[in-house]
C-alpha cells in the first residue's frame, strides 16, 4: 500500500470509523483516539484485501472491536461520558436534533445496530457478521430501538 492509497482510505473512512466509535462511547476524544488506532492498524496490517468493500468491512469491524475494548476498560466503567457533541452540532431541523438525542439515549448495543442499518446501509446479516452476533439478535435490537424511537419521537420516527 502506498502513501496515496493510505491517505485515500483514511480520508474516505475516518468519518464512518468515528461515528461507530461515537455510537459506542458518546465521547469525541475517545472516538478520535479510536479513529487513529484503527487507521494505524490498517496501515500495519499487511493484509491482502479483495475489494473496497472488504476494506470497509474490515475497518468497521476493527472500529467495533476497538470501541468495545474501550468500553470494558475499568476506567471507562467508572465514568459517564459527557455528550458534549450535541452542543457542537448544528442541526437544520428540530427533527434532526430530536432524533440525535433520542438515539444517544438508546443503549449502545441498539445505537450501533441502528447506525449500521440506517447509515451504513448494511443488511441484518451483514451487521450480525460484523458484530459477531446472531442475525435474530440484530433483528430484535432494531425492533426495540425502533419502538423506543417511535415512542420518544412521536410523529418524527414513522412506522416502516
Amino acid at each position: 500500500m502506498n502513501d496515496d492509497e493510505f491517505t485515500r482510505i483514511a480520508l474516505k473512512y475516518s468519518d464512518s470509523i468515528f461515528r461507530i466509535a461515537f455510537n459506542y462511547s458518546r465521547n469525541r476524544s475517545d472516538s478520535d483516539d479510536i479513529v487513529q488506532n484503527v487507521l494505524l492498524k490498517y496501515y500495519k496490517c499487511n493484509k491482502e484485501f479483495e475489494s473496497e468493500e472488504h476494506i470497509r468491512n474490515w475497518l468497521l469491524r476493527v472500529a467495533v472491536n476497538e470501541s468495545k475494548k474501550l468500553l470494558v476498560s475499568p476506567f471507562k466503567k467508572k465514568i459517564i461520558p459527557l455528550d458534549e457533541m450535541g452542543e457542537e452540532l448544528i442541526f437544520e431541523h428540530k427533527e434532526e436534533s430530536d432524533l440525535y438525542y433520542a438515539v444517544m439515549e438508546l443503549p449502545s448495543k441498539y445505537r450501533i445496530s441502528v447506525y449500521m442499518y440506517y447509515y451504513e446501509d448494511y443488511s441484518v446479516d451483514e451487521i450480525a457478521d460484523i458484530l459477531k452476533v446472531n442475525p435474530s439478535t440484530i433483528r430484535t435490537r432494531l425492533m426495540r430501538a425502533r419502538e423506543k424511537l417511535r415512542s420518544k419521537l412521536q410523529g418524527v420516527w414513522t412506522d416502516e
Binding site: F18, R19, M85, E96, L99, V103, Y119
Partner: peptide, 8 residues
C-alpha cells in the same frame, strides 16, 4: 441527515 453532521 442527522448523523452526517458528525465528523472525525
Amino acid at each position: 441527515n442527522t448523523f452526517s453532521k458528525i465528523h472525525a
